[in-house]
Design a protein around this nucleic acid. Structure first.
Lengths: 139, 139
DNA sequence: TTACGCCTTCAAGTCGACTTGAATGCAAGC
DNA sequence: GCTTGCATTCAAGTCGACTTGAAGGCGTAA
C-alpha cells in the first residue's frame, strides 16, 4: 500500500515533499531530538498533524537562517514555559541584528572588490606588494 | 637563532602573524598548491618577498569572500597568460553580483523574522498551523 | 514466486578550510 | 648534555546539516 493513512497522517516521503526536504532530513531531525519520536505503523513513520506543524516551524526557521541548534533552543525554552511570542521575539531580534552585521560585512567586501576591479597591476606580485602596504600588517 | 633571515625572509610563524593567520594555514596553502613550494633552510620554510606578496593576495581575496578554489582559479588563469587586471575584473564582477544576491536573501530573511517577531500564537503548534497555510506546500 | 518500491537502521561519507596530535628534528642557551 | 622552543611530516579530527550506502523488511502487483 502506498499510503494507508488514518486521519491524514503521511508517510515520510510525502511529509518530506510537502516541505521540500528529503526523507533523510526528517529522520535526522528526529534523531537529534528536534522532532519528537514519530509514531510508527508497521515500523514506518506516520507524520500526523502535530508533527507536520512542528516541521513547518522548523522549515520556516531554517529559511530565516536559524541553525538547528537555535531552533532546538527555542523549543526547549517553550517546553520550559516561555510564552511562544516572547520566545520568537527574543530569537528574532537577535538574529535580525546578526544578519544586519552580516550584510554590512558583505557590503565592505563588495567595496573592496570594486577596488580590485580597478586593478592596473602588471603582475600578481605587484598586486601583492600594493596590498601588503595596507593590508595585514599585524606584526 | 630565532630568525636568521637573509634579505628579509621570514620563518613561518612570522609570516603567519603578519597576515593574522596560523602557521598551519600557510602549510595548508602550500600543500594544496595555492602557494608554490617555499624554499627551505635547514628544512624550515623561509618566506621571501615574492611568497609574502602572493600570500597578501590570498589574504585579500579571502577577506572578500573568495574561496581558495576561486583564488587558485585566478592564479591558474594568470599563469595561462590572462592579464592581471582582466582576471580580477571578471572574478570581482561575478563575486559582487553573487554577494548582492546574498544580501537580498538576507533581507528577505529579516523581513520574515520581523513577521515572526509579531507572533501572537499561543502554542508552537498553532504557529506551525499558520505557517503551513503559506509555507512549503510543494505537494 | 518473484520482483518492485518504499520503508527501516546504523555507520560512514561529504563539503571547505583549516586545526590538532603524534612523533621527530634541529639550533641555541645554560 | 639537557632543556626550550620552534620547526617538520602525516594522518586524522572539527564543524553543521545532512546524504549515502549497505543490508534488510514489508506489502502489493504480475
Amino acid at each position: 500500500m502506498k499510503a494507508k493513512r488514518l486521519s491524514g497522517a503521511l508517510p515520510i516521503s510525502d511529509a518530506a515533499r510537502q516541505f521540500g526536504l528529503r526523507s533523510s532530513a526528517l529522520r535526522y531531525y528526529e534523531q537529534i531530538g528536534l522532532l519528537r519520536p514519530i509514531p510508527r505503523t508497521n515500523g514506518q513513520r506516520c507524520y500526523d498533524e502535530a508533527a507536520l506543524q512542528r516541521l513547518a516551524v522548523i522549515c520556516a526557521a531554517r529559511q530565516v537562517d536559524l541553525s538547528l541548534e537555535e531552533i532546538a533552543g527555542l523549543f526547549a525554552r517553550l517546553r520550559g514555559g516561555t510564552p511562544v511570542d516572547q520566545g520568537w521575539r527574543e530569537l528574532s531580534t537577535r538574529k535580525i541584528a546578526e544578519l544586519e552585521q552580516l550584510k554590512q560585512q558583505i557590503s565592505k567586501a563588495q567595496d573592496s572588490l570594486r577596488r580590485l576591479q580597478n586593478c592596473r597591476c602588471s603582475s600578481i606580485e605587484m598586486c601583492g606588494e600594493k596590498l601588503r602596504a595596507r593590508v595585514g600588517n599585524k606584526s
